[in-house]
Amino acid sequence: MKILVPIKRVPDPATTIRVLPDGTGIATDNVKWVINPFCEIAIEEALRIKEKQTGEVILVTVGQSTWQEQLRTGLAMGADRAILVKTDAALDSLAIAKILAKIAGDEKPDLIILGKQAIDDDANQVGQMVAEMLGWPQATFASKIEIAADKISVMREVDGGLETIAFKIPAVITADLRLNEPRYASLPGIMKARKKELKEIAADSLGVDLAPKLKVKTLAAPPKRQGGRKVASAQEMVSLLHTEAKVI
């Protein structure tokens, strides 16, 4: 099975994010960059499917040349080759989805597995958009994937429970947190990754309209937590919840 795994570079979830004073973005000095954790789960799942059957795992990312680092990490985990669609522009989900649909048209994968969302902007859109553009079935928030020949069944985490859906390839799946626990990039894997193909394509050579439809106006840090206050009695608490917090 040929599996395309689009991945995104994001700040390490353990990093404390600071918004720039002018609200145009976040401070990126001293930020450590990693593969988006959900994308990492997508890579792991693709590798497991490949190891059970045969096939190829192709990584793709859309970004600056520094994003190579995350592709190399994915290659070190065991992916076969990688594509960097190069652009210095900050693209919105729609533009990314268009690029990925174009790449899918060229590569003709059986499956596209993505993270359900990126932990930076939490948009949760790209997988769905790609499926729509390609006219393929989609299973979002996958927590279990089973494959028999060209039939796939996916257990999804939905509000209030689990749902299992079945469909045929080619298809798009987005990975949820409990799908698997990603492997480490082993040191021999890192050495092997050196020799794997990492192809660069200029984003504006794809003939796709990348003009943003979405504009980020401003970013703001969440309000600082205020210190608590001690109240004298349960009665006072109830009355404050009613009059001040207005929650009861």
């Binding site: 000095d29 001293n30 450590k32 990693v34 190579q68 680092e69 190399r72 990490t73 070190a76 480490y184 990039a185 082993s186 040191l187 890192i190 050495m191 990754a193 050196r194």
Partner: peptide, 21 residues
């Protein structure tokens, strides 16, 4: 991470990956 002088920038991708693993 304690990297006051941005020494990370002196590391190659491979070295960083090995460290991260």
């Amino acid at each position: 991470d304690l990297d006051f002088f941005h020494l990370d920038e002196l590391l190659t991708d491979e070295e960083r990956m090995a460290r991260d693993t």
